[in-house]
Amino acid sequence: MEFVQGLPKGVFVGQTGIAHPQALATPNAHLSGFNLALHVQDDAQRVQQHRMILLNQLAKFGVDKITWMTQTHSTICHTVNEQIPFVALEGDGLVTQRAGHALMMMTADCLPVVLGNADATEVANLHAGWRGLATGIVENTVAEMKSQPTWAWLGAAISQPCFEVGAEVKTAFCNKYPELAAAFMAGQAEGKYQADLYAIARFILKRLGVETVLGGDQCSYQQAEDYFSYRRDAKTGRMATFVFMQ
């Protein structure tokens, strides 16, 4: 398992992909590979086994708790430390100050954003599709944190050349932040634009005082061997982005 380099000592960030040496076979070709989502009509037992395989891998680095969410393209963020929710939390952001607690976000084109402070005493993980970015999931997650995040990491998401949106999406961002007009290129069809989720996230993070932004150089849509992509294959699995502190 590869971890992101350049983070404060004791912080571990990574993202799963399609390939995994312990991925279980499935008769459903759409879901072959290391799917971690329960909501995509995969066999629940297979998904739970994949999640246990991942937990066992992370346990070697001191992880003794893992939190998944029911993600809803919202701006809802929860802080989770010692408590273990009996019913899956709904929302799109998680914050923790507890060491050994891995925060999980699932994506397949949407943008995973991991945040943390310089002291390695608090981390956050959020799921940002265009709706979440436009309505404030990044701002809400930073507001939920008890400390100022100094760094962020952007996981694999759909890149600008592959992400066509309608004029209403551009309007949603530019009404809030006029400077974001630069993150939209005219598309092939009239009234269509290609949106740069990475540029939008970097702009918002900079406004919030996050000095260092790493990652943001992958394309879930184009890198078909590496990542699941909902735009490429409507029926598909999900990757997980994780963060934890030792």
Rank of each mutant, 00 (worst) to 15 (best):
F86D: 12
S32A: 15
E122S: 02
V40G: 05
Q45C: 05
H73S: 15
V113T: 06
E122L: 02
V40H: 09
V95D: 11
M105S: 02
Q45L: 10
T79M: 12
G33T: 06
R51S: 11
E122R: 08
V114L: 14
G33S: 04
T107Q: 06
A128E: 01
Q97A: 07
H39G: 04
N117C: 15
A29C: 02
E82V: 00
H127R: 05
A118N: 13
E82N: 12
A120N: 06
G116T: 01
L115D: 07
F61Y: 15
N35H: 04
R46P: 03
I66W: 06
G91R: 11
L58M: 12
C110H: 01
Q45N: 12
A37W: 03
A37S: 15
L58I: 06
R131D: 11
L54S: 10
L36Q: 06
R131C: 04
Q41V: 13
H50E: 08
E122C: 06
G132N: 02
Q97R: 13
L31F: 10
A108W: 00
G91L: 10
L58Q: 07
H127V: 01
D119S: 13
R51M: 12
A88C: 04
L133R: 01
G91H: 11
K60N: 10
L31W: 09
M105I: 08
S74Y: 05
L54R: 09
K60Y: 00
L55M: 15
I53D: 14
G132Q: 04
R46F: 05
G100P: 09
P27T: 14
T96M: 03
A108F: 01
V95Q: 08
D42R: 03
A29N: 10
T72W: 02
Q41F: 14
I137T: 14
V80N: 07
A25I: 13
G136L: 01
V138H: 01
T67R: 08
V80Q: 09
Q41E: 15
L111F: 03
S74W: 08
A88K: 13
A118V: 15
W130Y: 14
P85N: 10
I53G: 12
N125H: 02
N117T: 13
L111N: 00
A44N: 08
L94N: 13
A44F: 08
P27Y: 12
G116N: 01
Q45V: 03
N125P: 00
Q57Y: 07
A120P: 02
N28H: 15
L126Y: 05
Q48I: 04
L54K: 09
V80C: 07
C77T: 15
D43E: 14
G100D: 07
V114Y: 03
A37Y: 07
L111W: 02
M69H: 07
N125K: 01
N125S: 15
N35R: 06
T75S: 13
A108S: 09
A59L: 02
F61V: 11
S74T: 15
L36G: 02
D119G: 04
T67S: 10
